[in-house]
Design a protein around this nucleic acid. Structure first.
Length: 360
DNA sequence: TAGGCCATCTGGTCCT
DNA sequence: AGGACCAGATGGCCTA
């Protein structure tokens, strides 16, 4: 719709005023008026200036503009002397026609810029849906979405590389690296909700000793279906595409949690949590470096997540970020450049699997 | 009210 | 010339 409107230049001015962004229409109107005024002033100004412009400025003046008056004539005084002619692009007089064209160009450019930004935003929306913790009601900000996505990719890469079951705490810390505290809380909340079964099972397997990084691989079906990892368990391959990872069936089929009430919470429409597989060690790679985000005032320490409303307290397994744990979540952007980190491993097989994962 | 986030406008630069 | 991209400026909205 918008695209169609924008594709028709003749509609552009109207588009500016009446289409799509009703909430902005007044603003747009006023801005357009301002623009008109500015333009008007510009025109007037240029015409005023015209009287003092040098002859060289008019040399070669266009032509196409018919209406362009080959004015001035006052130039004699300017060019008549020894004054060197000005070089560089000739300034064209802003005739009404030229002003109009310029205005139209600007309007079209604004429309293009708007659609460009809308495209960018819809891409960001798509990204929000595939990163852990998707909520329509509490959208991640743009910057947080990008940070979380980066952390998520990183985490998944590490899972592929290590082939080990992740440590949940390290996983969450990794996902939350560089995120603001509210976002960290949100992500932790999402993960906790979705990981309840995971935690329960984990406690059983490990005798309640949560946090071990020596888990056997316990991957999600959608990963297994794509990666065909020997560690993977057979699962519901129908949900194998990352974009469908938000379906609960895969999780439920694995963990038997068919319909945890939280999963159906209106608050979280999507799959709240990504695969919990992660190498418990890889977050340690990033320890010890400063983070610009820290400088920005993000607080990683003493982050206590008490769970979302209605969520059970998991006691000692609750996602409580103490100062040490939280500090380990130093912003990855600032610890080691991503490519530097990748240099530490032979990643080729991982990339192959990732490619297969995302392109099948 | 300050600060964060966002949408939009705008001018500059680069590319085709 | 025109489009894409970018960054700065600006103002609105929301929340702590």
């Amino acid at each position: 719709m918008l695209t169609r409107l924008f594709s028709d230049p003749s509609l552009l001015p109207d588009v500016q005023k009446y289409s799509g962004w009703a909430e902005d229409s007044d603003d747009e109107d006023s801005k357009l008026k301002e623009e008109d005024q500015d333009t008007q002033e510009d025109t007037e100004g240029s015409e005023l200036r015209g009287s003092s412009r040098t002859h060289s400025e008019h040399a070669g003046e266009d032509d196409e503009d018919d209406e362009v008056e080959e004015e001035d004539d006052d130039d004699g005084e300017d060019t008549g002397g020894d004054r060197p002619k000005k070089r560089g692009p000739k300034k064209r007089k802003m005739t009404p026609a030229r002003v109009e064209r310029s205005k139209m160009r600007r309007v079209k450019a604004n429309a293009r810029e708007r659609t460009r930004m809308h495209d960018l935003n819809s891409a960001l929306d798509n990204l929000r849906k595939v990163v852990p913790c998707y909520s329509k009601t509490q959208k991640l900000s743009k910057i947080e979405t990008l940070r979380l996505a980066k952390n998520y990719i990183w985490a998944l890469s590490e899972i592929l590389r290590s082939g080990k079951r992740p440590d949940l705490v390290a996983y969450v810390q990794t996902l939350c690296k560089g995120l603001s505290q509210p976002t960290t809380n949100l992500v932790a909340g999402c993960l906790q909700l979705n990981s309840r079964n995971f935690l329960t099972e984990q406690q059983c397997q490990d005798g309640g000793r949560y946090g071990s990084s020596s888990f056997s691989m316990h991957s999600y079906p959608y990963q297994c279906a794509r990666l065909s990892s020997p560690h993977c368990q057979p699962g519901s391959g129908s949900n194998s595409h990352p974009l469908r990872t938000h379906g609960y069936s895969a999780y439920d089929s694995l963990y038997g949690g068919s319909g945890s009430p939280e999963y159906n919470s209106p608050e979280y429409e999507g799959p709240l949590s990504p695969p919990l597989c992660i190498n418990g060690n890889f977050s340690l790679k990033h320890q010890g470096s400063a983070s610009p985000d820290n400088e920005k005032g993000y607080h990683y320490s003493a982050m206590h997540y008490s769970g979302l409303p209605g969520s059970r307290n998991t006691g000692p397994h609750n996602l409580v970020f103490g100062s040490s744990g939280a500090r380990s979540g130093i912003h990855s952007e600032n610890v080691l450049p991503y490519h530097d980190i990748h240099l530490h491993h032979d990643r080729a097989p991982v990339y192959d699997e990732l490619n297969a994962f995302f392109h099948n």
